[in-house]
Every structure is written in C-alpha cells, then in structure tokens.
Nucleic acid binder design. Sequence first.
DNA 1: GCCGTTTTCGGCCCGACTGTTTTCAGTCG
Length: 572
Amino acid sequence: MAFEDNQQLTRIFEEIADFLELQGENIFKVKAYQKAARGLEGLERSVTELYRSGALASMPGFGKALVEKVSQFVDTGEVELHQELKSSFPPEILHLMDVPGLGAKKAALLYKELAIGSVDALEKALREGLVTDIKGFGKKTVDKLLEGIALLRQGEQRWLLGRVSQLAEDLLGRLRALPMVERAEAAGSLRRGKETVGDLDLLVITSSAEEVMKFFSGLGEVIGSGPTKTSIRWEGTFQVDLRCVPAESFGAAMQYFTGSLDHNVALRGRAKRMSCELNEYGLFDALGQCIASETEEEIYAKLGLPWIAPELRESGAELEWEKQPQRLELSQLRGNLHTHSLWSDGTDTLEQLAEEAQRRGYQYLAITDHSRSMVVANGLSIDRLLAQGEEIARLNRGFQNDFRLLWGSEVDILGDGSLDFPEEILARLDFVVVAVHSQFSMSPEAMTERICRGISRPHVDVLAHPTGRKINRRVGYQADWEKVYQVAREHGVALEINCSPRRLDLNDKAARRARDCGCMISLGTDAHSLPEFEYLPLGVLQARRAGIEATSLLNHLSWEQLRTRRPHLADV
DNA sequence: GCCGTTTTCGGCCCGACTGTTTTCAGTCG
Ligand SMILES: Nc1nc2c(ncn2[C@H]2C[C@H](O)[C@@H](COP(=O)(O)OP(=O)(O)OP(=O)(O)O)O2)c(=O)[nH]1
Ligand SMILES: [Mg+2]
Ligand SMILES: [Mg+2]
Ligand SMILES: [Zn+2]
C-alpha cells in the first residue's frame, strides 16, 4: 500500500543524501540519510502516524536529528534542509548520478569545473569534448558516460519477480550444464523474494572461473569482467551479475550476495564487535583463522544467531528479534483459493483445473469465476452459476481421493458496496471471494465505505487483490486500510495475497499489517490458465517477507476446517 | 547523523573492477 507520506519522505531523504554527498559532506552523514530512506521504504505503517505515536525514535537509524526532520515534514510537508539544498543547486543536477558509472565525486567535479547541472548538459559537453580537460576524465570515461546516458534514456524499470525467476531458471540451467560448474544459485533481491528486482545476481562454484566467465560473457553485453566477477546486460537492458568463489566459501558468498545491503552491514558490524571479520569468503576470528564459511547456518550460528530466512533479511533489525517466525513452506498449503475456468475468462475446463490441482497434491481448489456484472470477463449469471455448481458437484462425486473442487465465485463489490449476487445465492456457495473491479476513482472515504460494506455481507470468505495496484502500471486505490483490516477481522474475512506477479496484492508490508491487525490471509493465484498455478510460490515469498506463518493462512486449513465456516451447508 | 560487550566520543562493512593512477580514487556489488 502506497503510503504517500512514506514515499515523499523517502525521496526527500534520498535527495538530501545526494546533495550532501555532492557537497562533499561526511560520508557517514550521507549514509545516515540513505539508510533512513531505505528504512522508510520498508515501513509497513504510515511514517506520519508512527511519528505521532512517538514510536519513530525506536526505529534504527532515526536519532534526534532525523526525528526532527520527520517532525518538520509532518507539520509542513517539507524539510527545511531539503529546501535549502534544493535551492542552491540546478534543479536537474541529481539526475547526473542516475547515469551508471557517474557518482557524487565525478558529478561534483563536472558541476564545479564546467557548471554541468543536467544530463542533457553533460551529454553535450561529452560530445563537444569539453570534459577531457578535467582530471580523471579520459577517453574511455567519456565513452562509458555516453553509453550510460543512452542506457538511462531507455528508462528500463525494475523487473517483476515472476519474470526474473524465469530468467534465473533459464540462466542457471545453462550454467549448471557446464562441466566445470559445481553449483549455481540465485541470490540478491530475487532470493529475498522482493516484488521487483533490479538485477539478477548469480553465484557459481567452479573449478575454473575463467571458463565460466568466458561462457557468461557470451550471454550478453559485457559491463565489466574480472577473475571472480562479471556483469552483463541481458538483451541489452537487464543487468545480470555473476560471482564465482571457491567451494569452501559457498555459505559466506551466498550470505553476502543475498543481502540485503543493510542486513550485510549489520551482520558485519556484529562480527566486528565480536572481534571477527565477515566477508564473502568466510567468517574469520581475531587471528585471521576461518571459523565458518561453508554454510549460511554456520556463519549465523558462530555470530550467535539463528539462520535468518532470506525473505526477512532487509533492514538489519531482524538480527535483534527475539524469535524468528516459523518459515512458511509451500507444502503447508492445501489448496489454491482463487482460480478462473472457461466458464468466465479462464482458458481451461473444470476437469483440467481439477487434474492440475491434484497433480500438485492439493486437497482442494476453489473455482472463483467472475460474477454477472463483469460482462467483459464473461461473468456468470445466476443460472450459469447454479449450473456450474451442479457440474462441480458431479465432478466431486467422481474423485477417487479426498480431493474436492470448491464451488466459489469472485463476486464484484459494486460501486455502492453491495455485492453482485444476492445473499441467498452466496449462502449456497462453498467459497466466496469479493473484489473491486470497476469505478476505481472514488474518494478514499467512499472507497473505504464501499469495501467495508462489501466484506460485511454474510458468507464472504476473502477480499481479493484488496488495493487493485498493478506493479509498474498503476497504483492501487486509496482507502483507510487499517479500517478495512479491522472490519475484515470482525467479520472473519481473510485478506488475499494475490499471487499474480503483476499484482502481489496485498504486498508484503500490507500483509504484515493485516496479520498484525488479526486478519487471516488467503493465497490465491488468480490463475486464468494452468501455467499460472506456478504463481503460488511468489505469494509464499511475500507471506514469508510479511513474517506470516501457516496458522494465519486460510490455505493451511483442511477442507473439513474450511467447511466449518459454513455450518448451514449439508454434508457431502 | 547514529550509536554503545570499545559506552557519550570515535568509530561507522568489506571487496571487485575500471581507468589513468605511478600508488589509488571512484563506483559499484
Ligand atoms: N557487504 C556489502 N554487500 C553488498 C553491498 N552492495 C550490495 N551488496 C550485496 C547485497 C546485495 O543484496 C547483493 C546484490 O546487490 P544488488 O545491488 O544487486 O542489490 P539487490 O539484489 O539486493 O537489490 P536489487 O533488486 O538488485 O536492486 O550484494 C555493499 O555495499 N556491501
Ligand atoms: Mg540484485
Ligand atoms: Mg547485483
Ligand atoms: Zn480473479
């Protein structure tokens, strides 16, 4: 959920950091602002509310000065220091540092020597050969910067998690097929399960790094390549980093390359305080002896910590938790609670869906085709819904095992908050998912009221894709989500983590909040075709990032337990 | 600017690759 205040302040802190770095300020001061900005990005609550509740100061990285900055922001919507810095530089200057290969030092030099204050001005100066007069700007640097500008202009966004997972499978497959490759694994933000991924990070154990680098360099445009590390641009756009380490360093290297940055800094700081040193090759004691390196578990253990799940390695605060959550496993899910068939806008028959679900070992599958108002999606009329119910009953009688299809519906929450099917129809269904699919532009108050009305109706099980966001396409609609969670909890309605890679809605942070508010969570692939069943693990990753355990998941319930939510239905 | 098994000053993670460097700074992971 996009907390607008968090986003604005994140940006302000990032810009303060950049301005200060340009000015040559103490680098640790710069890092303090950068860390605070990342902290805000990962925050599952509104920073305004957190500040008002007085709890902000307990967030790592927020000391006296930064809390004061937040205070200014809450009162005025701005931060004085930010305004001052902004007015003392050309408006576009920070974009210089968006050019790959151009950092604060070089940007400052360009500004000081040639008054270059924008990417356009830089490009012009580079082409006219003006910058070669500056110390440190040779021919190669000029070419690299021109390339960097071209790349920046491509405007490539972060890729969706699902897309990078597929690329990783492809590239790992090719690497593992090489005879000299012992192991190849994905790390970085992909392994942490972030909803979008900036680049793909691959770790390889090999007897011949040289050969692996040579092979890898052939897969894309080479950005840089040395004996242990090569970076390429896949299809000229998306960066892939490959790192090689000796076999005995596998655990240390996975730990390093998985990150996050803040997690690594916190862990290495901890090692240091224990008179040790941690890097990607291992954990070393005061005498320089390696005391752990082969597995992540050993490294965390030697530092007095439990193994921390990659999905939870973000701010570094996770090192201080008294207890890590029980990690959710895919195998703990007994079914998929949001799917579409040929009856509405899916591509497969009920038989095909049931077969696929059984192949995956599910105990149940909820068929949740669209309701009658969703004309574009071939939504079901009441007559067709009832006919589908008979078909599902017939199929259920035929299964040899204890597998069952749940007769469900994805019922539209109409503009006024009423549902698209009457109560007596919902009462007959096994499973009811409700969702907003139309009339997105409403005031937050009206949207809150609408959703709360919708989920307050009897027989509703799940609020699907609650915020309506589509990653890199559109932000979700605004509403008072705390209120929605509260009403959902009161009515026993679960919040969905929609597993579709473009949605992942609720997102990790919102799901954590919803769970903290006492809501159950439901994982649904929203599959419109069989391959989309593969989306379920993406949702599991988000649930893990939210610290959600199996006990909070509707999907963890057996069919019999789910059934107790509908005591009025006859036994089957 | 933050923060405390080094406690209120003095550190703050650590290494790879590049370019123009004659010994290392800048940028990035
Ligand atoms: N110790 C240390 N590790 C770092 C640093 N920067 C990056 N790493 C590690 C942790 C990162 O997760 C990992 C990969 O770096 P990336 O820049 O690709 O970041 P990450 O994959 O986390 O996010 P992304 O989605 O690619 O932006 O390398 C650093 O400054 N210090
Ligand atoms: Mg990465
Ligand atoms: Mg990377
Ligand atoms: Zn759906």
